[in-house]
Simulated assay, not measured.
Amino acid sequence: MSIIVTGGDGYLGWPAALRIADRTDDRVVLVDNFGRREWVEEIGSVSAVPIAYPDERIEAAEEVLGLTNLSFVEGDLTEKSFVDQLLEVHEPDTIVHTAAQPSAPYSQINGERANYTQHNNMQATRNLLWGLEEHDMTDTHFVETTTTGVYGAPEFPIPEGGATMENQGERDEVPFPAMAGSWYHLTKSHDAANMRLAHSQFDIPISDVRTAITYGTEVEETRADPRLKTRFDFDYYFGVVAHRFAAQAVSGYPVTIYGKGEQRKPFISLEDAVEGLARVALVDPDERPDDLTVYNQVTRAISIVEVGETIAEVADDYDLDVAVEHFENPRDEDETHKMEIENDRYLDLIDGQDQTFAEGVADIFATLTEHAGRIESHEDRFLPGVLEPDE
């Protein structure tokens, strides 16, 4: 049997594949087309952490971790013929689908990139789901990392899954409405709807893992060798807020908070996200829920101001003098929104494992201070404006 991990060259996909491979004797097949490397190069940035290509990574995994069950296939999931061949050859028992163009700002640059993002992300998911149906593999467990961004910023607690709707005295459970705020996030709303339809029509067991803003540089497996490191983006387009703030601190920039920064966002450490994905992927087939299952893969909600202040505090331990400054917000968002999000099912899944935000930030600084030169040489990528909307 085999487990396919799409996006296996990516920030989350690579360490998740390592952990899955460490806990199973099944073949773990990584799939990627190196899109993330190309997109980051396109906007003029780099990964702060130098990363090896899959052949070197897999060699290191065998030498250092003793993993002999990893392999890599290069290909584009938007091409149906490639997906068909992938499924026919490897006959996966589980697919962990982490591949996507993941940047909301990138998807907002212009119509071309919005179209690219939506085609790339949604076509890949449709090809995989229909491929399972057409190749009589509907027992395959399909796990996708969507995003908590599908929820938008409602003024009520976000449920872990559907929502209860009441109209004219009648109540029913319905899918949570798509309230995404970017062309990227909307792709994941559509994916969630398509997965629900595929489960209904094809009876595919599906886990929709709605992943929060993920921060961190290391998991247990990647610490073992430089060739095992995962990427770390810090630019405006691909660097999540905690990563961008930490990189600014390392390069001597002030932490740039847009607007008031009092809005709370859902966060999870890379370690906790990897653990959750591994546990979902390796669940015993007899214990898989019969219905489509939604996990809110989040451990805490943190305000942007708190993110900045925590980074500034931890930076003191690395002799970095960091200022926190506020700038005009280029995004249309509620700067005081107090997000509440339910995550009981996910916390039960990982048995309450929870790396604190400060611990994760300390990990980031320990890594970034070794690569300060790469960040400083691209410090002009911290703020928007690298690509004009009409480019």
Score class of each variant (00 low, 15 high):
Tyr237Arg: 05
Arg264Gln: 15
Val89Tyr: 07
Ala312Pro: 04
Phe202Lys: 01
Arg126Cys: 10
Ala315Cys: 06
Ala21Ser: 06
Ala281Tyr: 08
Ala278Ile: 01
Glu133Ile: 00
Asp380Asn: 14
Arg36Leu: 15
Asn343Val: 05
Val73Gly: 10
Ile375Glu: 05
Ala323Ile: 11
Arg36Thr: 14
Tyr237Phe: 04
Tyr237Gln: 02
Pro289Lys: 09
Arg36Ile: 15
Asn69Cys: 04
Val280Lys: 07
Gly162Ile: 00
Asp316Arg: 15
Asp321Trp: 09
Glu271Ser: 11
Gly152Pro: 04
Glu271Thr: 06
Gly7Asp: 02
Tyr237Lys: 00
Arg36Pro: 11
Ala178Gly: 13
Glu144Asp: 12
Ala16Ser: 08
Lys260Arg: 09
Asn115His: 13
Ser303Arg: 14
Val46Lys: 12
Glu91Ala: 14
Ser47Lys: 12
Gly373Phe: 00
Asp380Ser: 15
Asp316Phe: 06
Val31Met: 02
Gly239Val: 01
His90Leu: 08
Tyr116Lys: 13
Asn69Thr: 07
Ala372Ile: 01
Leu70His: 04
Phe245Lys: 08
Ile109Gln: 02
Leu30Asn: 02
Thr146Asp: 02
Ser81Phe: 11
Phe156Asn: 02
Leu86Val: 03
Leu270Val: 09
Pro266Gln: 11
Asp286Tyr: 11
Ile268Glu: 01
Leu228Ser: 06
Asn194Met: 15
Val143Gly: 04
Asn167Val: 15
Gln123Ile: 12
Ser200Asn: 14
Val96Pro: 03
Val143Tyr: 04
Val324Tyr: 04
Ala99Gln: 07
Arg345Ala: 11
Leu128Trp: 02
Gly13Val: 04
Asp203Phe: 00
His135Trp: 07
Asp286Met: 14
Tyr151Asn: 09
Glu62Cys: 06
Gln101Phe: 10
Leu282Gly: 03
Glu379Ala: 15
Gln168Thr: 11
Leu320Arg: 10
Val46Ser: 11
Ser189Arg: 08
Glu328Gln: 15
Ser251His: 09
Lys188Asn: 09
Leu270Ser: 01
Pro389Tyr: 04
Glu376His: 08
Glu218Phe: 13
Thr68Ile: 10
Thr24Leu: 00
Val29Phe: 04
Gly7Arg: 00
Arg231Pro: 06
Lys265Gly: 07
Ser47Thr: 13
Arg27Ser: 09
Ala372Thr: 11
Ile304Met: 03
Val298Ala: 14
Leu292Trp: 03
Pro266Val: 05
Phe245Gln: 05
Gln355Ala: 12
Tyr53Asp: 15
Glu333Cys: 13
